[in-house]
Amino acid sequence: MLSFWQSSVGKKAAMGLTGLIVVGFVLVHMAGNLQFFVGPSKFNEYSHLLRHTLIELTWIVRLVLLAAIAVHITAAWQLTQRAKAARPVGYERRDAQVSTYASRAMRWGGVYLLVFIVYHILHFTTGTLHPAYDEAQAYGNVVIGFSSLWVSLFYLGAMALLSLHLYHGTWACLRSLGLAKPSSNPLERRIALIVAIVVPAGFSLLPLSVLLGIVR
């Protein structure tokens, strides 16, 4: 187990597995959020379900996600340090030939996502950074939260980076886990594209609809 974690391949597989867990979570989270458009009572009911009726399940999910993100970030950090040490003297000129922008944005995009996750929890889960938080009024919290232009822009920026992270990550994680099938038009590329569009777009509907005054 230790030698597995010490290996660069082991760390990458751990990133792939933990990434996949979080991909599963964001899919479910996004779908759940769409109940916002059914109306206040439905959305508040959903919030009550997660915060009271199913609180044990919620805590299990929280702990799994926390552990997954911790492993993910630790491996990301260590692999980044390893990569830096592997080329201390850079080239005067090295042009990216085929790597996608998404693949090159994984590191700084990941840091943005980390800041976002912390802010997001303090904003809508604990209410610490929310101007008028009311535990029982999830719907109202969202409307008030997103009526600030800056807050909405920060969320939308995070969703743009989430899209890039998902585009590279959903494709890469299957390969890190050795599960991909050789193909010139890999299925996982197409799945990654769909995930990278659908998940951030679904999340973004909430701040957009509040900003544009469609939902009040």
Binding site: S8, K12, R82, A85, A96, V98, S103, M106, A172, S176
Partner: peptide, 9 residues
């Protein structure tokens, strides 16, 4: 050597 990030380069 560094690890693989699947850049594809």
């Amino acid at each position: 050597f560094g690890g693989c990030s699947l850049f594809g380069e």
